[in-house]
Design a protein around this nucleic acid. Sequence first.
DNA 1: TTATGTTTATATTACG
DNA 2: CGTAATATAAACATAA
Length: 459
Amino acid sequence: MLSLSCTDPWPEGSLGLEEELVTAAAQTEQRDRVVSNNNDNICCSVVNLDDSLTSLQWLQEFSIACPDMPQHAHQQPHLFGRQLDSDTAASPLSGDPTSISVARGKPTATPYSRMQSLPSIVAHGHCLDEVDYKTNVHIKPPYSYATLICMAMQASKKTKITLSWIYKWITDNFCYYRHANLTWQNSIRHSLSLNKCFIKVPRQKNEPGKGGFWKIDPKYAERLLSGAYKKKQVPAVQINPALQNRLHIQPQPRGPCSHRRKMGINPKSQRLFREFKEATGADQNWDTHLGEGTMLGSWPEVRGRGGYKREQTALQRCSSPLFPLDEQKEIGPLKGDFDWDSLLDSVLSGELNLEGGKPLRPITKEEDLTVRGTYITPGDAPAGTADIHELVETQRSNDVSDYDEEAFLTRAFLESPWPEDEEKGRSDFLSNSTVNLDQLFEVGEALGGNPSLWIDTLL
DNA sequence: TTATGTTTATATTACG
DNA sequence: CGTAATATAAACATAA
């Protein structure tokens, strides 16, 4: 059966910054723009906290992006603002165990710590967690720019890095940004300047190179200790505009009505989920890792500013986690024999192993759930399957038929890894298929939100 | 000229 | 509705 590990090291092996930069410069036009600076000195200083103006939510979110980091920074305060003695900038590519969490070698949101505290719904959500942001060109990583900067800094193993290094790290680790237009770099610069978490360290007069260095204000880590910060919000699904034409996807306008068409969670589902959480006491054991990696995979979190971001993250977990990379290549997107229901069943039944060989635990009798008055009886074979089905039925019985299966489908379509050497083939397939998301939605709505019917109809 | 950095403006989304 | 956080765009300045 399928088995996915979230702890695999980066397969590319370790690359020094210089090597990385040379390689990167040869790979993409955008990387050609990256200016290397291999002589960045290391320094570390502590600055006073100023909590005005700018957000620090990314700090807490960073713990999501980097599950290896502690939930409570006070337990390992060195993780922020620590003095690092490595002269070799480390990215996740270098397999640094303290850097970004990886799944099959890519940065993903892979928190699993509390999975067992929640039943099959958790498993369902969890399995959808791992979007291969390293190779997926289409889906914008669910990390704020500040988070990305922070990740780059963390990965660099230095206390100060250059802007170009940040560019480099992001493009190396998030394929989306290799293909996106360069406005994101403007946003990065904007974030660095505006966000008080980032401190500019001027270059020494005798130091060659352009621009200064940037470091994290360690004082903001202290804010993290207090748990004062919530998660950020990002748009639900952001498809790489540079590739939308190839996908025959209408760009999502950033206008007053753009939110209406997003593949997010509709208010009904949000309300249902809120009630579900209340019914199950899911909040009692809540933490950011759980929220990112498990329950929210299929059930939208709606509390806090993180809700929106979590929606996106959740919805980015649809297809790629379900198959090893090689299988994904074989299967390809939306092949005719793709069986969504069986796939879902596999996940729900615990056959799909997602946690380093640790199979998903089926629901036990002791974990019966009552949701909106519907008693869910777990434990029947196939374990867990009936539970989620019943819950879904419960939803539908409560007029939530527009549950976010549409997002499930659409994202599954979009999220399969898209290595650059495969782009042509996939692009051709997509061009021939001419799958229009709006059309998909229309069909899906007409079919009452049943993904199997959607697929059957489309194929 | 280009990369870098600052600032302003606007839009979106969610929370209280 | 006000506020906060974030994203995006753009104008502008500065340094290499």
